[in-house]
Amino acid sequence: MTGYILRRLLSVMVTFFVVSVIIFLMMHSIPGGPFDGGDMPVPEAVRQKLNAQYGLDQPLYVQYGRYMWGVLQFDFGVPFQSPGETVLELLGRAWVPSLVLGGLGVLIGVPLGILLGMAAALKRNSWIDYLASTVATLGLTIPVFVTSMLLILVFSVWLGWLPSSGWGEPERWILPIAAYATIPMATYARYMRSAMLDTLNKPFVTVLRAKGLSERQIVFQHVMRNSSIPLVTVFLPMFIGTATGSIFVEAMFRVPGLGSYFVSSIRTRDYPLEMALMLMLTVMFCLAYLISDILYAWLNPRIRHGGKQE
């Protein structure tokens, strides 16, 4: 198991390197730079001086090498859009709302989804099953910015119960978290339902009943454990879904989190911030992969203890 984790960590590092090169090249292949045109044209001499100051006149591999050397020492440079602080400081500030939003969203959405999916599977073809299916379908098909807009429309504009934007006071958190939680909830409701139904149809469940176990014992000790194995593999796609969704949610609700900066850094060609955000996302995805693989191996004895004995 330790060897397995080490091997996986190594592959995470390789992935990180490859992705960083790709992102770096892609960003620099987009025509234009941070000091080109826009609303306020910069005189040519000034533009060249700025490019030199930020090292943008160097060959790409030099730029990449310098950049990565800095990254290894947690130096991501200075964001163009807010030169008064380092990228690291800006990220440190922007982390908090995103973490609260994402963390609470997943923390609320996943258990709700699991409960909904379980109830649907155990009471098949009942109202709760139809409710769960509807919620899951809507949650997965309606784009999150539409959900956000609907929430704002209903709870802020019509009912006037909750503020529509900003961060700060906890009541401002409710709507974005609700919008954000729909993705994990819908994903987990759907997968939990089908995983449970799949497990309930396995022959060993009949054996468990035949030996006199209570239905509660069967569901909570056996069916849940077996159904959670496929759920672990769903964690990653869901994570990607919520991470990309966060950009829209933060933009819609004007949450000063990573998502908002992500959008603005692309708009303003803020290379240092853009690079830092992309690399961070990469690390997060890699870790999500790693965690879901380890969990999968831990839950599944076929992987944990491979091979036959006797």
Partner: peptide, 28 residues
Amino acid sequence: RREELTELRGRAAAMIFQDPMTAFDPVF
């Protein structure tokens, strides 16, 4: 009812099945 079912299954009568490979919960 529930208690009688527990009594019935396993204690009064026990059952074994055709395919032993799928009769056990794979994770325990």
